[in-house]
């Protein structure tokens, strides 16, 4: 809430200049934008794609951007510089996905010896240039709004763009996955099956995807506001989970987000 609720990104009549950029990530989130075929077609009436490696071969004109979507976390010095350039030309910068918002799965290396990891993973580590930690975009530049998820939800992406076009606050509520789970009439897997579920502490947006398939939520949208992680962790243990498993549960896609990190280190 708060950030991003102010005003419209569109000047009256003029097309919104959109840029989509990628740092360290898998492209999955950008592909969500491409998968909105029908809507994308309608969108091109309102949106001019200035930079989007996946969608257009037209060269970036380097001019100012109304809406900028950034995918991926910052893992290298070059990415950090690139990000700063992008921020400088952006009016409204949105991070898309768990990587950009919370450091992503790459952040699992955080807190470990990077040199050691590199030797294990790459044959010739000398060619790999990497910062000590994979960090979220907001650690480096101001962010106006964050779309959560791994990958992000197509509906939320369209909602964000639609809201910016209309000058309205995006209907992306910072509430628990449980709220969506209950609205859609799912039977709670935690209560009815004893599955560990991160839904109660996780930011909504996926439509309670995992519980809909009978599994507990993995927390890929990251912590919701005021996430009561310790209380949930305590419940997991009371239900028979050992401490190590509990720590691992909080250490996935968004494990670097402070609330989850705390619980995975407790």
């Amino acid at each position: 809430m708060g950030a991003g609720s102010e005003g419209s990104a569109s000047g009256a009549g003029a097309k919104v200049r959109l840029g989509v950029f990628k740092l360290a990530s898998c492209d999955g989130c950008q592909l969500q934008l491409l998968s909105c075929e029908d809507e994308l077609l309608a969108l091109t009436e309102h949106v001019e794609i200035v930079s989007f490696a996946e969608a257009t071969s037209r060269p970036d004109d380097g001019g100012p951007l109304d809406l900028t979507l950034v995918e991926g976390s910052v893992s290298t010095e070059a990415q950090r510089e690139h990000l700063q350039e992008v921020r400088a030309r952006s009016r409204f910068l949105v991070t898309i996905g768990a990587c950009a918002t919370a450091g992503g799965i790459q952040a699992l290396r955080n807190g470990r010896d990077v040199g050691e990891l590199l030797r294990v993973v790459y044959a010739q580590p000398a060619y790999v240039d990497t910062l000590a930690e994979s960090t979220p975009v907001a650690d480096h530049v101001p962010v106006d709004f964050s779309l959560r998820g791994c990958p992000i939800d197509k509906g939320q992406l369209l909602e964000l763009i639609g809201a910016l076009l209309a000058g309205r606050k995006p209907a992306i509520r910072d509430e628990s996955v449980c709220m969506e789970c209950k609205r859609s009439g799912q039977v709670c897997v935690m209560v009815a099956k004893g599955e560990a579920c991160l839904g109660p502490v996780t930011h909504a947006g996926c439509g309670a995807l995992c519980p809909t398939f009978g599994r507990g939520c993995y927390g890929c949208f990251g912590p919701k506001e005021g996430a009561q992680v310790a209380a949930l962790g305590a419940r997991f243990e009371a239900e028979g989970m050992d401490a190590e498993t509990r720590r691992r549960r909080f250490k996935l896609f968004t494990g670097w987000a402070p609330a989850f990190r705390e619980e995975s280190e407790r």
């Binding site: 969108l43 369209l158 763009i161 628990s176 449980c178």
Partner: peptide, 25 residues
């Protein structure tokens, strides 16, 4: 956990919010 499960299953809770979406297509 402030998760809202109790109010959602409660057969009398009536609190609601609204959204004002515009259809893109």
């Amino acid at each position: 956990l402030a998760c809202g499960n109790c109010t959602s299953v409660c057969p009398t809770c009536f609190c609601s919010t609204t959204e004002s979406p515009v259809a893109i297509s």
